[in-house]
Design a protein around this nucleic acid. Structure first.
Lengths: 246, 246
DNA sequence: AGACTTTTAAATGTATGACAAATGAAAATT
DNA sequence: AATTTTCATTTGTCATACATTTAAAAGTCT
């Protein structure tokens, strides 16, 4: 089924993981199929059990397999759930943004551009539930004592509900990375009462136009929101620069 | 810096991996920082070296760390490159589509919706290079003897160039999952000479309107392309159903 | 003194063997 | 027939040993 060795550039466990991963991705190993036991794989690849285990842990880290102990246990090809994929995507995207000096502008542009793409579908498919969630988050955002972290979390929840209202799980999955990965960046912005007021207004308009079924208007508000977010970020960055020079 | 144990629901190696991952994601461990050696981590977490190694392999599978052998080697926090992230994203997205019975329509809608979101930026920022790449792929697609696989690969390359022309690496990264993950689905569609002709025409129009700087027109062509792709998929599915009934 | 070679210590990679713990099937018992 | 016990299988963890790689440090030669 799969053979290799003598690559020499990579660890054995990495090579074995790649071989099995390829078999999974290419569809040779169907979902819920059981892999051979660790001992059998060790025999098959002519390596020790530890090496096989390290390979399997690599695959488990990507949710490609799950393991079960006991007789009739073993490693099984895992059906990746949207939930698992979200998590990995968010982790990767977050690190990508924080480690690669992606500017706030670029991240913001990407996020809102894709969010705008949801508008036409959202007006067609949003349910009462989606609207209720969005309005509930707006309500939460209006509470005076809300901490910056809770404010940002509610902001993410609002946008998440909007994206989900487009009724396309693939879009939701793809956008989770953009929206949630920006949360650390957003957390750095201090939202004063005045800022919040303005954003809440825009959120309300989005909900209203979504309710009315006007995609163009929703897109326009999203542009305003994007611009305003960028403005706030500029101010924060400018203030930090000033502080640094002082 | 990080402690746990007694979770009982998860493996020790998974718990340790999570602890270190959290420290990385939260920014406590800066890029290129060296983790303690395996022996030291084993001591710190009060587990065996094998268990630590399995945890580290999990992190390595997500490109969170890289390891180096030899004195002064060890595990270092890895700066995730866009390239690494692409790869993981494509793998996950591909499996998500193939394992979760995501309909062709849903995948197609997501892909083209996000691609349309690129149009306004693409007309502003596309370079001569991008246009040249797109036209070169169109040229390739016009060759009569091209296999279905090569055709699809060239199709991906064309759309990739278009997305890249928007000049936003975050958008490019997010879209890589959608565009490339659909390749297996696209490969199932047999593109006759007549089909190809029509798609090549649409590709040409995209390149032309991009050249002219007309984002609205580009979006309209993308909608046409999306619709046509869906039509082709319907036909293939219908033909398969017929075959099955026969 | 400076350039080259050798040694050495530290770290990861791999192998082996042992035992613990979980688990479901099969056998034994009530 | 239902329940309990036994048992084989498999993953999880630990301990130890050795191979391999690597760069610094020490040594050697010109």
């Amino acid at each position: 089924m799969k053979i290799e060795r003598n690559d020499a550039t990579a660890d054995l466990s990495a090579q074995i993981a790649t071989a099995i991963r390829d078999a999974i991705v290419s569809g040779q190993l169907p979902v819920d199929e059981r892999l051979p036991s660790e001992a059998e794989l060790a025999e098959e690849f002519q390596v020790s059990r530890s090496t096989v285990r390290e390979a399997l842990k690599r695959l488990a880290a990507q949710s490609l397999i799950r393991t079960q102990r006991g007789a009739f246990g073993g490693a099984f090809i895992n059906r990746i759930a949207f939930e698992d994929a979200y998590g990995q995507h968010v982790t990767t995207s977050t690190l990508l943004l924080s480690m690669n000096a992606v500017s706030f502008d670029v991240a913001c542009e990407a996020r809102f551009a894709m969010e705008r793409a949801c508008a036409p579908f959202a007006v067609k498919r949003r349910t009462a539930d989606h609207l209720a969630t969005m309005r509930a988050e707006i309500q939460k955002q209006s509470q005076p004592g809300l901490s910056d972290e809770s404010w940002c979390a509610s902001d993410v929840a609002f946008h998440r509900a909007f994206v989900d209202s487009a009724g396309n799980p693939v879009i939701s999955y793809q956008l989770a990375g953009s929206v949630e990965a920006m949360q650390p960046l957003m957390n750095m912005i201090t939202f004063t009462a005045r800022n919040r007021e303005k954003i809440i207004l825009l959120h309300t308009e989005i909900a209203n136009y979504l309710d009315l079924g006007n995609p163009g208007a929703v897109e326009k508000i999203l542009i305003k929101l994007s611009d305003y977010t960028k403005t706030l970020a500029y101010d924060v960055i400018a203030a930090k620069d000033k502080e640094k020079r002082a």
